[in-house]
Structures are given as structure tokens and as C-alpha cells.
């Protein structure tokens, strides 16, 4: 994969859609394509979060190990979405496991690299923030609905 191609791939992903070429080039410098087979972990709970992932293909399950209970999948993330936001927020540790449930292709963005670039070029930082906040907002909203456990029968 040529670096030039990766920049195109980045800009073609919904998360980076419309990113100006100069900034895309900065992101590209921290990015590489990576594949995961079904069952393979992208990261585990408690580990240092070193990458932020942009999904091109496949599906990733976010899960928590619950003592005395089978592993609980609380969300899946599909092509077009992102995963690993903990890599951008201190203390940069993963809060859950991420496991590919299908053949998955991601653009892995090295977190320290992109954080440093954001510090250097606040324009990149702001662009990233503008793209990240709506995702967080949507997930917060979805979590709220999920918390309500609306499908349960009364008394469940």
C-alpha cells in the first residue's frame, strides 16, 4: 500500500470525510492499514491505548468481562465508524476489550503521533475534536437508551 493511497483511503472514510488535504497528510503520517481475523483482539481492557482505529471493513465487538457472567458485548462497531477513543483521552488506557467478529480492516492511527501533531497544529486538533464530539454525543445518547432497558417486561 502506497502512502499516497492511504491518504485517499483516509479522506474517503466517513470519519475524515472532507478533511483538507494538508491535514489528511498529517494524519496519514501516523496511520497504517491493519487487518484482524475474526476472534482477534484490537486491544484489551486496562492496556495502554496506543491506537485509535478507523474501520474500513468488518465488525468489532466491544466487550466487558463480568465476573460470574459470560463476557458481555455492549456494542458493535461497523465499517464507517471508529473505535479506541481512549487513545486520545488521558490516561490513555483501554476501558474494554475490542474483538473482531468478522474479517476486519482498519486504519490504525498511532495515538501519541496524532496527539503530538494536534498539539503542534491546533487546526488538526480542532478538526479531530469536531469529528469526535458528535460520535461521543451519539454514543452517549445510545447508552442512555440502552440503560433504560426498555424491552424488559415490568418486574424483570
Amino acid at each position: 500500500m502506497e502512502i499516497h493511497d492511504l491518504e485517499e483511503v483516509l479522506r474517503g472514510h466517513p470519519f475524515f470525510e472532507g478533511l483538507e488535504p494538508q491535514l489528511a497528510r498529517l494524519v496519514r503520517g501516523c496511520a497504517r492499514l491493519q487487518r484482524f481475523d475474526p476472534g482477534q483482539r484490537l486491544f484489551r481492557e486496562g492496556e495502554p491505548a496506543e491506537h485509535f482505529y478507523v474501520l474500513r471493513r468488518g465488525r468489532v465487538a466491544l466487550e466487558l468481562s463480568v465476573p460470574g457472567h459470560e463476557t458481555l458485548v455492549f456494542q458493535t462497531v461497523d465499517a464507517g465508524e471508529i473505535v479506541g477513543i481512549a487513545a486520545l483521552v488521558p490516561p490513555y488506557r483501554s476501558l474494554y476489550d475490542a474483538r473482531a467478529v468478522a474479517r476486519t480492516v482498519v486504519i490504525a492511527i498511532e495515538a501519541r503521533c496524532i496527539r503530538d501533531k494536534c498539539e503542534t497544529d491546533p487546526r488538526l486538533g480542532y478538526e479531530l475534536m469536531k469529528r469526535l464530539v458528535p460520535v461521543l454525543f451519539q454514543r452517549l445518547r445510545a447508552t442512555r437508551l440502552q440503560l433504560l432497558d426498555v424491552y424488559g417486561a415490568p418486574g424483570d
Binding site: L72, T76, R99, A102, R141, Q146, Y151
Partner: peptide, 23 residues
């Protein structure tokens, strides 16, 4: 089809139904 939560054997979507709307 999505479910609010699942065990590891489930390979479909997990998350509230509204998350499917953009798809």
C-alpha cells in the same frame, strides 16, 4: 437486527436500534 447486549457468540449488531438508522 441489533440487540442491546449479547454474549460473545453473537456476531450480529450490538447497540440500541437507533444506532442502525444511519446504516
Amino acid at each position: 437486527v441489533t440487540v442491546d447486549h449479547a454474549g460473545p457468540e453473537w456476531h450480529g449488531h450490538v447497540g440500541v436500534v437507533t444506532r442502525l438508522v444511519p446504516r
